[in-house]
């Protein structure tokens, strides 16, 4: 235990999982499973916040099934929706998100390490294109359900490029130019 504390200087980390307004049962089932929670524990995470959207039943079933077996000190907090996820995102050290552009953008703006889990049922969807394009630029890491645990264990999600700050002047220039101010 002592050795572990030394290798992870921050031993009180928080993970945030968000599925947006959709249903994404597999991701809820995966993160509330013993192998995943054990990995969280060994990486120094102490808190897991889950925004589970429409996967309400899956969430409660999963929580119920691990309650008897859980032998680590991870605190799990869950809710379906909130007006703003900002607070939870700010507090967390790693975010696992669905491929929705709104969630992705919010995480990137906060410069948080981000793993986007692609829903295989939505392959070919434009949101998947966005996630893959952003991965090619190094802003985030994409994953499937099948390799999420492996990716998380490997720590490979940390070396990402930070997303450029938004430049408000570009749109202002477009507007002013179009209205004949220049």
């Amino acid at each position: 235990m002592e050795l572990m504390a030394n290798s992870n200087h921050n031993n009180n980390k928080t993970m945030f999982v968000t599925v947006g307004s959709t249903r994404f049962d597999q991701i809820i089932n995966l993160v509330i499973s013993l192998p995943f929670l054990d990995t969280l524990n060994s990486k120094g995470f102490r808190k897991l916040i889950i925004q589970y959207g429409k996967s309400v039943k899956i969430y409660h079933d999963a929580i119920h099934s691990i309650q008897s077996q859980q032998n680590n000190e991870i605190e799990i907090v869950g809710y379906d929706y909130k007006t703003s996820l900002d607070q939870d995102m700010v507090e967390s050290d790693l975010i696992i998100s669905h491929a929705g552009s709104g969630s992705i953008l919010e995480c990137l703006r906060l410069k948080k390490p981000l793993i986007v889990v692609i829903n295989e049922n939505l392959m070919g969807n434009h949101q998947v294109e966005l996630a893959i394009e952003l991965q090619n630029k190094g802003y985030l890491v994409c994953s499937f359900i099948s390799n999420l645990l492996e990716l998380f264990q490997s720590d490979k999600y940390f070396n990402s490029v930070s997303f450029p700050k938004s430049d408000e002047t570009i749109f202002i220039d477009i507007l002013n130019e179009e209205m004949g101010l220049y």
Partner: peptide
């Protein structure tokens, strides 16, 4: 009436 349209950030290829 000037019309300005900005396509969503989510639209990469289509």
């Amino acid at each position: 009436i000037k019309l300005i349209y900005v396509e969503s950030f989510a639209r990469v290829k289509t």
